[in-house]
């Protein structure tokens, strides 16, 4: 445990824990909305923010936050208005964001793509004290939204059309989800990197789903997995000199595979118990596969 005595490791572990909590917490709602890849898109857009930060000699973390929040709002507006050509517009936003990042960082005095690499794949050992302050503040916002507004966020993510009729401010909550996802991307940027951040939003949730039957349990298990893998990956990278971002993501995928293997017999036993409990559970009834849920697909 000698690594705990190094200040850079203390900062790295704190940042890792915060990412382990926040990324699965907002990822849960993104998966529920079937927007699992939104984090990836925001990550691309955030590159322009990092590049601008270098160009203007300001903090890349705060600049990336500003740009990715704007990008996320734009994505939500595209989803809202441009239904037919939405995917094309999103593609342009993503790749425009990536190209902008590369361009700005090369224009920056003394800047090169080497600077960008630490943001693309994470660079835990270079997390500064001011980075930690920024990460703490941003993480507090994410926790406040995902936990404090969980019933509202659940309702909107589960069924937007229905949520409207409960009087919830659906558009405001959609924007809040997008902004929170953007903030989470910049929280995670220094730890796992912009290109891998989406994995930490989605894979712990997918792994938790193998065990959980309720939303609350999925939330708790996903965050537990997130914290375990970020801490485990950080410590591993200290001892083995391997890149922390990649280590964390590979650990997450390993957790998914292990939990899936464990859960398969569990699910079978549950199904058997359920059918034993209700022997003739309406043979006429048939399960309809989950598919048509988008409000956009409802016929007129």
């Amino acid at each position: 445990m000698d690594f705990l005595t190094y200040p850079f490791m203390q900062r790295a572990l704190l940042a890792a824990v915060l990412v382990g909590i926040t990324a699965p917490a907002i990822g849960l709602y993104l998966v529920q909305r079937r927007q699992a890849l939104m984090g990836d898109g925001i990550g691309h857009v955030a590159m322009t923010g990092v590049g601008l930060g270098f160009l203007l000699s300001t903090s890349p973390v705060w600049m990336a936050t500003a740009v990715s929040v704007l990008g996320a709002i734009l994505m939500e507006l595209i989803r809202w208005y441009g239904r037919t050509r939405g995917d094309i517009a999103l593609a342009m936003l993503f790749y425009g964001g990536m190209a902008g990042g590369v361009m700005f960082i090369n224009l920056a005095p003394g800047g090169s793509n080497a600077n960008l690499t630490s943001y693309l794949f994470g660079s835990l050992s270079t997390v500064s004290s001011s980075d930690v302050v920024a990460i703490c503040l941003l993480a507090a916002f994410v926790v406040l939204v995902t936990l404090g507004l969980r019933r509202q966020m659940f309702a909107v993510s589960q069924d937007e059309e229905f949520a409207r009729v409960t009087g919830l401010p659906v558009r405001a909550l959609n924007l809040l989800t997008a902004v929170t996802a953007a903030v989470t991307v910049t929280v995670a940027m220094r730890v796992v990197g912009l290109l891998l951040v989406s994995a930490l939003m989605v894979v712990p949730v997918a792994a938790a789903q193998q065990l959980a039957r309720s939303f609350a349990a999925t939330f708790a298990i996903a965050v537990a997995i997130g914290v375990t893998v970020t801490l485990g990956g950080t410590v591993t990278s200290y001892y083995q000199d391997v890149p922390p971002g990649a280590t964390i993501v590979l650990l997450t995928i390993a957790a998914f595979i292990v939990l899936t293997a464990l859960a398969t017999p569990l699910a079978r036993r549950r199904a058997r118990a359920a059918s034993a409990q209700r022997p003739a559970a309406d043979p006429a009834e048939r399960a309809i596969p989950a598919g048509r849920t988008s409000a956009d697909e409802v016929g007129v």
């Binding site: 849960l28 998966v31 529920q32 909305r33 079937r34 699992a36 019933r151 509202q152 659940f154 309702a155 993510s157 589960q158 069924d159 059309e161 229905f162 949520a163 009729v165 409960t166 009087g167 919830l168 949730v205 789903q209 959980a212 039957r213 309720s214 939303f215 609350a216 349990a217 999925t218 309809i288 596969p289 989950a290 598919g291 048509r292 849920t293 409000a295 409802v298 016929g299």
Partner: peptide, 29 residues
């Protein structure tokens, strides 16, 4: 004062949820 049942074939979302959790959303108002 308004209860709404949208046109759906499923009550499920992308994440597991219990029957109580889904129905509770209707009580938010």
């Amino acid at each position: 004062r308004v209860g709404y049942v949208p046109q759906r074939t499923t009550a499920a979302g992308g994440v597991p949820a219990t029957v109580t959790e889904v129905v509770s959303a209707g009580r938010l108002s």
